[in-house]
Design a protein around this nucleic acid. Structure first.
Length: 112
DNA sequence: CCCTTGACTATCT
DNA sequence: GAGATAGCCAAGG
């Protein structure tokens, strides 16, 4: 196929699958980490092309909100999967990961 | 080749 | 904080 994918896709998949549960990364961050700065808009398509399931829901916009339209099916799905891992929201924005206590959140749920 | 479309981002008002 | 604007870049019509 020799499209621009080959390496880009591989790197993106690698980066995304390495995001720890309970944490999120921005599209731009993923692109940079993959070695392709300014390719934020390509990240989503790369994830879609992944042959195996990826923690795609751990990738969010740079302002820490979800990329899908609020109320859409995808939006709710992503939000639910994230909350399931202990990620908390402040309205539409994701609360900055306070500590590495994600595991606790998953096992015990948000206490506060 | 031109135009449009995205799971985008940074900057300005 | 929300909307507008301008970059960004591959894909598909």
């Amino acid at each position: 196929m020799s499209k621009f994918h080959d390496e880009f896709d591989q790197k993106v998949w690698s980066v995304v699958s390495s995001i720890p549960g309970g944490q999120v990364m921005g599209y731009g961050e993923v692109a940079r980490a993959a070695g392709f700065p300014r390719y934020s808009r390509m990240v989503s398509s790369a994830m879609s092309r992944s042959p195996e399931p990826l923690p795609w829901y751990r990738v969010v916009k740079s302002d820490r909100t979800l990329a899908f339209e609020q109320g859409s099916e995808s939006y709710r799905e992503q939000a639910q999967l994230l909350k399931q891992e202990g990620v908390r929201f402040e309205g539409k924005k994701i609360v900055a990961q306070p500590r590495g206590d994600n595991l606790d959140k998953i096992l015990w749920g948000p206490q506060d």
